[in-house]
Simulated assay, not measured.
Amino acid sequence: MDKDDNHNQFTRPLLHAIQEASPDGILVVDRHSQVISYNQRFLEVWQIEQKSRPDDQTAYPHLPEEPLLDSALRKLKDPDAFLQRIQELYDNPELHDHTEIELTDGRTLDRHSTGLFDDQNNYLGRVWFFRDITRQKLNEALLQDLAWRDQLTGVMARGYFLERAEEELQRTQRYGHTPALIMLDVDHFKQVNDRYGHYAGDRVLVMLCRRWLDTLRNNDLLGRIGGEEFTILLPQSDLQTALQTAERVRSITENQSVHSDGIDINCTVSCGVTMLDNNQNDSINDALKRADNALYSAKKLGRNRVEQFRRVTDN
Score class of each variant (00 low, 15 high):
A17C: 07
I26E: 02
H16V: 11
E20Q: 13
Q50P: 06
S33T: 07
E20H: 06
E44K: 09
L15K: 10
G25H: 04
Q50A: 13
N39T: 10
H32C: 10
D24V: 04
E44W: 09
Q40Y: 12
I36Y: 07
I36K: 12
E49S: 13
Q47K: 15
L27F: 07
I36V: 14
L14V: 12
E20R: 07
I18G: 01
V35A: 03
I18W: 01
I36P: 05
D30Q: 10
D24R: 14
S22H: 06
E20D: 15
P23V: 15
D24Y: 15
Q34V: 11
A21S: 11
E44N: 09
Q19R: 09
V29R: 02
V28K: 02
S33M: 12
L27I: 11
I18L: 11
S22T: 11
L15I: 10
F42P: 01
R41V: 04
G25D: 01
K51R: 14
I18R: 04
A17F: 03
Q34T: 13
V35E: 01
Q19I: 03
Q34S: 05
K51Q: 13
V45N: 02
Y38T: 05
V29K: 02
H32L: 08
E49N: 14
E44S: 07
I36D: 04
V35G: 01
A21V: 04
L14D: 06
H16I: 09
S37C: 09
Q19F: 08
W46M: 01
